[in-house]
Amino acid sequence: MHDLFDRRVILVTGKGGVGRTTLTAALARAGAASGKRVLVSEVEELSRQGHCPLAELFGVRSLGTEPIQLAENIQGVELQAETGAARFLTKLFKVEALSRLALRTNVLLRIMQAGPSLHEMGVFYHLLHLLEGRLENGEHQHELILIDMPATGHTLALTELPQILTRLVSRGPVAEALRQGQAILNNPDTGTACVVTIPEPLPVSESLELIDGLKKTDMAVGAIIVNRFPTLEFSPEEAAAVLAFDGIKERLGFSEFSRNQRAQASLARLQANTGVPIAIVPESHTDPENLVELLADHLSEVQP
């Protein structure tokens, strides 16, 4: 797990409700503890109202388009299409006035709101801009960028973007930016995805499909994190004994027992079908703030 933090960018991805945001925060803390300057980020969503769970995990209300300090060695930012477009134009036209004019005509904004991929393109460029940032001494300003990816589909939209767009636009500044981003994202030494899931059949199926999809977009998968793993273990004899109890299906505790069994089977399925290091995060009943610390501790202990 340690070498996970030697990458430049980690996409933390997984379907809703698996604890992805909490784990992004935990990974950030673990990365910072290993000495990296970490930037955590989330992708803006259109018309969501002032609620930012990632920021809240660090005791801050919301994140802005410029990185802010969240903890020692951890900064936070919101990746925004509009900001990305503005950065892109400023760099492209150098003449500040022209890019401001271009933005002011509202044309770009309208298009970005309308076109499905242009939004991703803006986000992509904002990310690239942050990856390229340097300190005065020439070191990367953000050594490790973690992105809390909204939904599995959005992850693929972002990772497949360079392939789709460079096919259409093979030359020019857009293509160049996409290739620069690709060089970081699609190199397993610098870019990787971290798939968060819970040990249930459907989430695991979806994770397996996601891993397939990521491979198709040349995105490496560096780790799978199985969250909320039941702590109580039944030996095969005990499990058989439970199932043999008369009328057990109508008792309290059986539902949890079934979940427990599904968790074991789901983990075995992930192990058999992926060949990716798997970290297990046990279910715990602590409050959210402690949870972040607890997960960070746990993750730094796990070896690939």
Binding site: P116, S117, H119, E120, A151, G153, A157, E160, I164, G213
Partner: peptide, 9 residues
């Protein structure tokens, strides 16, 4: 290209 995109569409 547009219609082959998984998301947004």
């Amino acid at each position: 290209s547009l219609v082959s995109m998984t998301v947004g569409m």
